[in-house]
């Protein structure tokens, strides 16, 4: 399982980190700590044709990106 912890980083860094992590394989799980990176990564991944599922985990969010 490919995972990325982008909590604490401000945009655009979580998106850049996601872009890089996607090269290492799918599915990718990304942890973020705000709605801004959640929305930005979701939009980025959907624009690239990936499927994105997300759920709240405490105060953070977990995104699962797959084909």
């Amino acid at each position: 399982m490919n995972t990325l912890d982008a909590r604490g980083y401000s945009c655009p860094e979580p998106v850049i980190m996601t872009k890089k992590a996607l090269e290492k394989g799918l599915p990718l799980t990304v942890m973020v700590d705000g709605v801004t990176p959640l929305n930005n990564i979701t939009r980025f991944a959907q624009n690239k044709g990936y499927k994105v599922e997300s759920r709240a985990v405490g105060e953070d969010y977990e995104l699962t990106i797959s084909k």
């Binding site: 945009c11 655009p12 998106v15 850049i16 980025f44 624009n47």
Partner: peptide
């Protein structure tokens, strides 16, 4: 909306995202 003058140009160049 997170309106941002820098972000508009940055995201378009970096990610092809025009939002």
């Amino acid at each position: 909306t997170r309106l941002c003058m820098v972000g508009g140009i940055r995201d378009a160049v970096l990610f092809g995202d025009f939002y």
